[in-house]
């Protein structure tokens, strides 16, 4: 009996200690995790319409629309175990014009996370699902102007950036605009371009995310849209003012690599 008492006391103390330390607690209980997509242009914060920036080709530009899909979020604990957010709760449309939309908020089990993975775009499976599985941001009914869906060639626009540049030729509407609408999930009945990109972010340097039930951890990512022009392929606005569903779009999609940088985590 005494021994059992002793054991209970020790266990009790151990649990208490753990709580005080707020150390790694692994449980199946779900808690909030937020991923913040903070859009910047090189060393500057992105300011829609008013900000002026220069790309590697020396072309100056401003941005009037910036929006993209983030989906299929997966997180990895410091001990290596992975958790995939249920797909139905894992589609987010980040829109620079709506500050609230910059947070992708998910529920994941309590724990310490050192790895984050997500897709820029919409996976091919969801892109071909029945319309009853395309609610909210995936509703194909989005308007023409800021819509993220191609009706004529069934599929989502993964990344849309438009703006003005004096180097862009005058378009039929009389403006010097550039328009980049990047999509392509690989094709349904015939193979075509696939611009779905998956990103793995290591959180160890910027700070692991400590997910607890009594608060919300926020992984703060910087999204440098300058990389759209200045990646492995240097994009010239003058030469390619309009890039939509075309073979060239692959170059821009490849430039997305290196666009996401983990700055810090707010626990």
């Amino acid at each position: 009996m005494n021994k059992i008492w002793l054991l209970l006391v020790i266990i009790g103390m151990a649990t208490a200690c753990k709580k005080e330390e707020s150390g790694p607690i692994d449980s199946d209980e779900l808690a909030s995790l937020s991923v913040e997509f903070d859009n910047i242009v090189g060393p500057q914060n992105l300011q829609l319409n008013t900000g002026s920036y220069t790309n590697a080709k020396g072309e100056t530009f401003s941005v009037s629309i910036l929006q993209y899909f983030i989906s299929n979020i997966k997180v990895t604990r410091t001990n290596g175990t992975e958790y995939v957010v249920p797909q139905d709760s894992s589609y987010f449309l980040i829109r620079e014009s709506d500050p609230n939309s910059r947070f992708a908020k998910v529920k994941v089990p309590v724990g310490d996370y050192s790895g984050l993975e997500f897709v820029l775009g919409v996976d091919s499976l969801r892109s071909t699902m029945d319309i009853s599985d395309r609610k909210g941001v995936l509703d194909p009914a989005g308007g023409m102007e800021d819509g993220m869906y191609w009706g004529w060639n069934s599929g989502y626009i993964f990344f849309k950036m438009e703006g003005v540049s004096p180097q862009a030729p005058v378009d039929p509407s009389g403006q010097n605009k550039f328009r980049y609408h990047i999509g392509g999930f690989g094709g349904y009945s015939a193979p075509t371009i696939n611009n779905i990109k998956t990103f793995s972010i290591d959180l160890k340097h910027g700070g692991v995310a400590k997910v607890r039930t009594d608060r919300e951890s926020n992984i703060h990512l910087m999204v440098d849209v300058q990389k759209v022009f200045n990646g492995s392929h240097q994009v010239s606005i003058a030469e390619n003012p309009t890039v939509m569903f075309s073979a060239y779009s692959v170059n821009i999609a490849n430039n997305f690599e290196g666009m996401f940088h983990h700055h810090h985590t707010e626990n």
Binding site: T128, I131, P140, G147, G151
Partner: peptide, 15 residues
């Protein structure tokens, strides 16, 4: 370009 009848009407409506 459209592989599901349910997605067809979107095209003429928005064109």
């Amino acid at each position: 370009g459209v592989f599901d009848m349910d997605l067809q009407p979107v095209v003429p409506i928005m064109n």
